[in-house]
């Protein structure tokens, strides 16, 4: 139906997402006005609580653009948190070492999985499914108990605040500025860098070409395997970084942490207009996907009586809805 207009199907999907986000947030502002939905801080909190997810979803977007997928990111996050907590609390390492370890773990996952997928030609889903179980199991091997992080430098990072020039007034009429922690700054920088990388750099354009049609990309003379490998490595690195940001939020490492995060990341990317078949997707769209996920959880928390697993159900339903739309649009395109 929308095909006759000039707008492309992908632009259409992104538009749905952005409109959906604003409608949902506006609905939240109207229904839960007393819970502070209208406050600027509430909006910023969407970023604050999802900073790690944002970075991870960006990495996933890059992989999904090539037509691949990575479902190990949730486990990598749990592993990163656990390793950081273990290093700082039990091994006496400094926070800097822990951060390096976090990024290293992500990178290692990216390299191994990327190698198996691109050079060994194994289905990405199987490889990363194994990675998912491997990561979660390794987390349990390090410790089955929760380790809370008490490292002073780390907590200083976690509790640092950038205050905004705007804010809201509390009941006594005192002005409280809105704030964002460093995690949000890092996450937004990552989104921006990814957007630039994908839009204006050679590497980014290659990714789209490969995702669009691997065969023609190969015939055009692109180094398909090497580029895809790099995409997985980058994704792994971002998963490590995302895990670090996640850890700054939770300040603890435990086995059950970030369970289902891969689902959140994938659905964020898909809701943000990334095609599962590859070739289409933008980090900005993914960001809106993450914001929608955040809005759903805030709405359900604000509602109060619904349990937390409703977030998962609603998100799954939304993912299903977008997948179906994608499929319908794709088949409409084919007929045309």
């Amino acid at each position: 139906m929308k095909q006759k207009k000039k707008m492309t199907s992908t632009g259409f999907l992104l538009l749905i997402t952005i409109v959906l986000f604003f409608v949902m947030y506006a609905a939240g502002m109207v229904i839960f006005a007393d819970k502070g939905f209208a406050k600027p801080q509430m909006f910023l909190n969407l970023f604050v609580s999802n900073a790690g997810l944002l970075v991870i979803a960006c990495g996933l977007t890059i992989v999904m653009i090539t037509g691949g997928i990575d479902i190990s990111v949730g486990s990598v996050t749990a592993l990163v948190c656990m390793v950081m907590a273990d290093l700082m609390e039990n091994k006496g390492a400094s926070a800097y070492v822990a951060v390096l370890a976090a990024l290293g773990i992500g990178l290692l996952f990216g390299i191994v999985q990327g190698y198996l997928v691109t050079y060994m030609g194994i289905q990405p889903f199987i490889v990363t499914l194994a990675g998912m179980f491997f990561g979660r199991g390794l987390t349990a091997i390090i410790s089955t108990d929760m380790i809370a992080i008490k490292n002073k430098l780390f907590l200083k990072w976690a509790n640092y605040r950038f205050y905004m020039p705007f804010g809201s007034t509390n009941k006594k009429g005192k002005f409280i500025p809105a704030y964002i922690p460093p995690t949000v700054v890092i996450a937004l920088i990552v989104v921006l860098l990814c957007a630039i990388l994908l839009k204006y750099r050679k590497f980014g354009r290659k990714l789209y070409a490969i995702g669009g049609n691997k065969q023609s990309a190969l015939m055009m003379g692109l180094d398909v395997k090497k580029t895809m490998f790099k995409a997985y490595v980058l994704n792994g690195f971002l998963a490590g970084l995302g895990g670090f940001l996640f850890c700054l939020n939770s300040c603890a490492g435990f086995v059950e942490q970030a369970k289902g995060l891969e689902m959140d990341a994938i659905s964020s990317a898909v809701i943000g207009g990334t095609l599962l078949s590859g070739g289409v997707g933008t980090p900005i769209g993914t960001m809106f996907g993450v914001l929608i996920k955040g809005t759903i959880s805030s709405l359900i928390t604000a509602q109060g009586s619904l349990s937390s697993w409703w977030v998962r159900i609603v998100l799954s339903a939304l993912l299903c809805f977008f997948i179906v739309i994608q499929s319908v649009l794709a088949s409409a395109k084919k007929k045309k």
Partner: peptide, 13 residues
């Protein structure tokens, strides 16, 4: 039980 997946993942790969 929590640690089993590590070995199984290796076998799968």
């Amino acid at each position: 039980a929590d640690q089993l997946p590590v070995y199984k993942a290796i076998v799968v790969i």
